[in-house]
Simulated assay, not measured.
Amino acid sequence: MVESMKLGERQFPFKSALNASTLMPFGLRLDQQLRVAAEAGYDGYEIWVRDVEAYVDEGHSLSTLRNEVEALGIAIPNAIAFFRWADRDERVREEALLQAKREMELLAELGCLAVAAPPFGDVEGVTPHEFAQRFAELAKLGAEAGVEPYLEFWGRAARLNTLEQTLEVLRSLEASEAKLLLDPFHLYTGGSKLDSLHEVAGRNIGIVHANDYGATPPRETIADADRLFPGDGVAPLGQLAQLLHQNGYAGYLSLELFMESYGDLGAVEVAKLGLEKLQAAFSLTSL
C-alpha cells in the first residue's frame, strides 16, 4: 500500500487505518474485520483487545492470523485496551498491570506493537507527576512484552482530559521517546487548544484517530455516537493535518467512529467511504 496518495492537486501525506469501532454494527470476527480493511484499501487496521480475546476463546490461532495479515498486506499499528493503569487505588493498579501484561503478550503474538493507554478508571486528583510515574511502570512492562503504550487523553475524563495536561505528563517522564495518541473528538470535548500541537514533535505521536463532529449537540453533551465521518462536520481537520505534517508526523490516521447504524451500506462500503472522506479531509494543498 502506498504511504502518500495524491488527490488532484492535493496530497495525503499520512498512512490510513481503520479502527475496529467503525465496524462494530456489523458484528464481525477479528479476521473478518481485517479482510474488510484490506479490501477497502487501508494501510492498517487498529484492533480492539476484546476482539483478540474473543478470537482466541473461540479456538482460533493468533500465529495463523498473523500469517494471514501479512498475506493481506495490512499492518496492525495499535490496539484499543482498557486497563486501569493510572487509578488512584494501588490494588486496582496492581491488577491493571497484570491485565496489561497478559494483553500485551497477546498483542505481541499477533504482531501488534502498540496499545492505547487512556485515563480509564478513577483518576480524580491524580497529578501529572503521578501519571508519569504510573505510565513509566506501564512502559516498562510494554518493553518486556515488545508492545509500546501510547498515552491517550480523554475529553470527558476527570484528569488527563486535555492535550495540555498530557504534555505536562510527557515533560515529567524521563523517557523523551514516549508517544501520545491524538483524537480530534477528545481535543474538542476536553477544550484543548489546537495550537498546543506546536509543542509536539512528530516522533512523539504514536497514532492519530480521525473523526469529525457537528455544531450540535453542544460540546458539553456531545457523545461518542455523535462522531461524524471526517469532513462531514465542523472540526478544523485541515488545520490539524497541516500541524501534524509540519511537526514531522507521517504515521497513521485511524478512522474511529461509533455509529450505531450505516443504513443499507455494508461493511466494505462503509470502509471505502470512510477512506475517501479521511483522505479528502486530511489532505494538504501544499507540502
Rank of each mutant, 00 (worst) to 15 (best):
G125R: 06
T221H: 12
R93D: 03
A136I: 08
F135N: 03
D183A: 10
E94A: 12
T166H: 02
S283K: 01
L278M: 15
A175V: 13
V147T: 02
D57T: 10
D195C: 08
G274C: 08
L197I: 11
G266S: 09
Q33R: 14
Q33K: 14
W154S: 13
V123N: 06
E103H: 07
N247I: 05
V52I: 14
L170I: 14
D212K: 05
A17P: 07
Q279C: 06
M1E: 10
L278C: 08
A132F: 09
F229P: 05
K277C: 06
Q33H: 14
K6S: 09
A40K: 07
L253A: 03
L72T: 02
D212I: 12
L106N: 07
Q32P: 01
E220D: 09
A71I: 11
G231Y: 07
L257V: 10
H245L: 06
Q165C: 05
I80Y: 15
S61I: 10
L107K: 08
P25H: 02
H186Y: 09
F120Y: 15
A250F: 06
E3W: 04
A241G: 07
A201C: 04
S61N: 05
G142A: 04
D232I: 10
W154Q: 14
A280Q: 07
E124V: 14
E137Q: 12
Q242R: 13
A201S: 14
T221A: 13
Y213W: 13
N78G: 00
P119I: 11
A281H: 08
G251P: 12
E174A: 15
R91I: 13
D195F: 08
A158E: 14
C112L: 04
E53G: 00
A75E: 11
I205P: 04
